[in-house]
Nucleic acid binder design. Structure first.
Lengths: 158, 158
DNA sequence: TAATAGCCGAGTATTTCTGTCAAGTATTTA
DNA sequence: TAAATACTTGACAGAAATACTCGGCTATTA
C-alpha cells in the first residue's frame, strides 16, 4: 500500500551521494551508480529532472559531474520527490491535474486530504541535511512543525 | 506520488455505506453499487476480502446483504486498507514479504520507515465511526495520539 | 583533437491495476 | 420442492504505469 516508485527512491539516494561528495568537487553519475547500485542510464534520466528543476547543477567535461545548487539544509525530501513523481495525491480526486467532480458528496474526500497533508508536512520538513547527519529520527515522534531535535536519540547508526 | 488503489478507496466507501445502512438491516451490493458508482462485480471482489478478514458479515437469501461484524468505533480505516492492499510499505525494502538485504547500509531506510509509521498511525487512528460523524478533521492537526477534537474547526462542510 | 562527462528522446519489457465474466453455492419464501 | 435472491470463486483481459535500456548528441578540458 502506498508505495513510492524506484525513481523517487533512487533520486533521494542520488541526492545524498551528491550532497556528501560535492564538498570535494562534482560527483559523477558513474560514482553514484556504483555506490547506490543503480544503472547509469537510469540515473541520467533522474538527475536530468532534478537539474532542470534547479536543485542540482551539472558541470560538463572531464572532472565534471553534479553539485548541489543550494544548501542541503534548504532542500527537502518532499521537494526531490515532487520533482520526480509529481505532487502527493492519495486519490486521483486530489490530483491538481485531474480534479474532483463531486467534492461535497464525497465522504472520504476530507480523509484523503488530511492524510495527504500529513504526508506532505512530513516530507517537506525532512531536509537533505538531516539525512546527511543521520537525523532521520526527527520524524518518528514529531509534535510540532519545528525542528526540535532533543527527542529520539535511540537507534543511532553505528 | 503515493497513490492509493481504487480497491482501497472503494473499500472504504463501501464500508461507509454498510455502516450507515446496516442499522436498518443488511445492505446489498446493489445498493452500494448505486450509491457509490462502482460495479457490482468489482464490489463483490472487494467485499469478499473484507468478509474473510472478519470486518463484515454476510447474510444470504432474500433480504440479505452485508452488515458490520463489529462496532464502527473499533474498525479503523487502516484495517480496511491493509486488508485490501497489504501493509503500508513505502519501499519494497519495508515490505515484510520481501525484506531488506542491507538495512544498515541503507541511509534512507529509517526515513521511509518513519514515514510509513507516521501514515500507519494516522490510518489506524481514524475509525469508521469518525467517517460516519464527519469527524475526519481530527487528522488535520493532530498533535498527540489521542482523539482530542477541540482543534481544527475550519473548513467544516456546509 | 581526443577523451571525458553530461544531455536527450525514443523505445520496450514487465508488472500492476482495474475491472469483467461465467459458473457456481447457500438461504429464504411460496 | 422450486424459484428468487444474493453471495462466492477463480480465471482472464485490456489499459496504464513502471522500470528500465539504447543510441546518438553536445559541451568542456587537457
Amino acid at each position: 500500500m502506498l508505495r513510492l516508485s524506484t525513481k523517487g527512491q533512487y533520486g533521494v539516494r542520488a541526492m545524498y551521494e551528491i550532497a556528501r561528495g560535492s564538498v570535494a568537487g562534482p560527483v559523477t553519475i558513474k560514482e553514484i551508480s556504483e555506490k547506490q547500485h543503480v544503472s547509469v542510464a537510469y540515473l541520467e534520466q533522474i538527475l536530468n529532472k532534478l537539474r532542470r528543476s534547479g536543485i542540482i547543477r551539472s558541470v560538463k567535461g572531464p572532472g565534471g559531474g553534479y553539485v548541489l545548487a543550494r544548501d542541503p539544509g534548504s532542500i527537502s525530501i518532499g521537494e526531490i520527490l515532487k520533482e520526480l513523481e509529481g505532487p502527493v495525491a492519495i486519490t486521483s480526486c486530489l490530483d491538481p491535474k485531474e480534479g474532483c467532480v463531486r467534492v461535497d458528496s464525497c465522504v472520504t474526500h476530507l480523509l484523503w486530504k488530511s492524510l495527504g497533508d500529513n504526508i506532505e508536512r512530513f516530507l517537506d520538513g525532512m531536509k537533505l541535511q538531516d539525512l546527511l547527519q543521520g537525523n532521520q529520527l526527527m520524524g518518528l515522534d514529531r509534535r510540532d512543525t519545528g525542528k526540535n531535535t532533543h527527542a529520539a536519540r535511540r537507534g543511532r547508526p553505528a
